[in-house]
Design a binder for these strands. Structure first.
Lengths: 110, 110
DNA sequence: ATACTATACCTAAAACGTTTAGGTGTGGAC
DNA sequence: GTCCACACCTAAACGTTTTAGGTATAGTAT
């Protein structure tokens, strides 16, 4: 069983990051891995996409970052979901659902 | 019952255009309307997005355009799905499904 | 007549997010 | 002592969409 990779659609990354962080605080590098795991190896988020995205959403107040260290003692910047981030996750999930529904409906058409 | 509008995600427009044309040839302006109807008024595709997209996918051979006239006699450029376009629609629908599945799976995670 | 609206096309600048590709530095394994 | 995994960051290029402009025709209302 091989995996056809799932391509990220532009605009979904924020939702995915927020979702990953909703399972607990994590540093950037770890978010990539968590997304990979959660998706059964189907999603690979590039660092060049992730770090700017984290910066973006931190500015918006959806996550807050703090320098710390991981289990093995290495320095890393940990991000956690803020209250606003939780709300935003809901918003983004709802608009995903809305689009998914629309696409499904259109697919039914003959 | 009002409609919260569904935003188009970058990268889905081609699939939507191909789907619209899979129901029969149509001119650009009509594609916008057909998408609107099919989506129960939730999707509005901008002309500035549509015409470049049509040009793009015609170059790729997924649709072919020909000048003609509509029912009321106005000139309009009609596009129809090619064989390659039908295949491409399948491809795009499959990758949409793949991503939708991944997103659903991740949403389940706790 | 003339104004307005809907139809139908097209284009260019700007905004946006992602990919690609470069870089730094640390720590552990071989 | 060299390599790989971890962990961060940035900039240029790329592709798509938004925004905002434009042309032209036909029908309807004033």
């Amino acid at each position: 069983m091989t995996n056809p990779k799932a391509d990220l659609l532009q605009g979904t990354l924020d939702m995915l990051i927020l979702k990953a962080l909703s399972l607990g605080p994590l540093h950037g590098y770890g978010i990539i891995q968590r997304l990979r795991t959660l998706s059964d190896n189907m999603l690979h988020v590039e660092q060049g996409a992730l770090y700017p995205a984290l910066y973006r959403i931190e500015l918006k107040g959806w996550v807050s970052g703090k320098w710390g260290q991981n289990e093995t003692g290495r320095r890393a910047k940990f991000y956690k979901l803020t209250k606003a981030g939780q709300r935003q996750l809901k918003v983004e999930e709802e608009s995903w659902d809305r689009l998914a529904l629309v696409v499904a409906k259109m697919r039914e058409a003959t």
